[in-house]
């Protein structure tokens, strides 16, 4: 199978994730969309690794996963505490930075 197809898939997933981040209000969903974008990147890394015949991309994908796992921990903790403080997980409610 042509590895380029994996890249199309990765682009599709990335676009879905980005659109989700921009248009959804629920913090959990936004968060999941971020994960989707990360994984789209992982997919493209692995695909490129296959295309170029070395393992650099695959190793980098592992790094991404580790970082994403750590990020999930921190991100979920923030969302939980946000929910506790404001009784809502909507990102629009957390717009206190505006004057």
């Amino acid at each position: 199978m042509n590895p380029v197809n994996y890249l199309y898939l990765a682009a599709l997933l990335f676009t879905i994730g980005a659109t989700g981040v921009v248009i959804r209000k629920n913090a959990i969903v936004v968060f999941m969309c971020v994960e989707l974008m990360l994984n789209a990147c992982n997919l493209s890394l692995v695909a490129f690794s296959r295309m170029h015949g070395n393992l650099d991309g695959q190793i980098l994908a592992f790094f991404t996963m580790v970082v994403a796992a750590a990020e999930v921990v921190v991100g979920l903790a923030i969302i939980v505490s946000l929910f506790r403080a404001r009784h809502s997980a909507s990102v629009d409610d957390a717009s206190l930075m505006k004057l």
Binding site: A18, V22, V91, S95
Partner: peptide
């Protein structure tokens, strides 16, 4: 320029994208 700052995270995300 301040009007550009809506305070919504997604606005910033859109501008970043």
């Amino acid at each position: 320029l301040r009007k550009l700052q809506t305070g919504y995270a997604r606005t910033y995300a859109v501008s970043m994208f």
